[in-house]
């Protein structure tokens, strides 16, 4: 009974995450990070290692939640643990992680979730490409695009911020930026 209630609560939290509810995110983060941190530290990892590992697992959870088809069958904690284990393994294999895999990370990730990780890796790849492309963009393009696509500001606000006389001008600037981004991105993407 208690177990079910826990799952119900976790499902609520997950729904909150889907709705971009900051409080749900904070709850999941603060409740689950300490145990991952403790485990990484136990295996002589650093705080940064733990943060990277956990945040990547959280991103996977978030992407899955965003897709809207994710139904939670185990506790969030179990899911996050399992994902962390897989990421840990991956990092070991690619050699950019020196920590031995702890036994306590049980192999509880179903095959479907293994797909999730493969999917995530592809997305991660694309993300890195976009990140690199964005970093090579000059100003004001970088800020305009970030304002529009990350901070979700309206073109009106962006026009005001950058001193354009109207949003039409700002839009023209955005088109130019997009043109440049498109060129750079597909160069990277295809290589």
């Amino acid at each position: 009974m208690k177990h079910n209630q826990n799952i119900e609560r976790d499902r609520e939290l997950l729904l909150g995450l889907t709705r971009n509810d900051d409080r749900a995110l904070a709850t999941i983060y603060t409740e689950n990070y300490p145990s991952i941190l403790r485990m990484v530290l136990q295996y002589n990892g650093s705080e940064d290692d733990a943060k990277d590992l956990f945040q990547e697992a959280m991103i996977i959870l978030y992407e899955k939640a965003q897709k809207g088809e994710f139904d939670l069958y185990s506790k969030l904690k179990t899911f996050l643990y399992a994902v962390c284990r897989h990421l840990w393994l991956k990092k070991l294999q690619t050699g950019n992680w020196q920590l031995a895999l702890p036994d306590e990370l049980e192999e509880v990730l179903p095959a479907e979730d293994a797909n999730t990780i493969a999917e995530h890796e592809e997305k991660d790849q694309q993300f890195r490409v976009m990140e690199k492309t964005m970093s090579t963009m000059g100003e004001p393009c970088k800020t305009i695009l970030e304002d529009y696509y990350i901070r979700k500001l309206s073109m009106q606000d962006i026009a005001g911020k950058f001193g354009y006389t109207n949003s039409e001008n700002a839009k023209n600037q955005k088109y130019k930026c997009l043109m440049r981004l498109k060129k750079l991105f597909f160069e990277q993407y295809k290589s």
Binding site: K123, Q126, V129, E146, Y149
Partner: peptide, 9 residues
């Protein structure tokens, strides 16, 4: 891609 990038950032 940009949207996803934005979301993730």
């Amino acid at each position: 891609q940009l949207d996803q990038y934005g979301q993730r950032v």
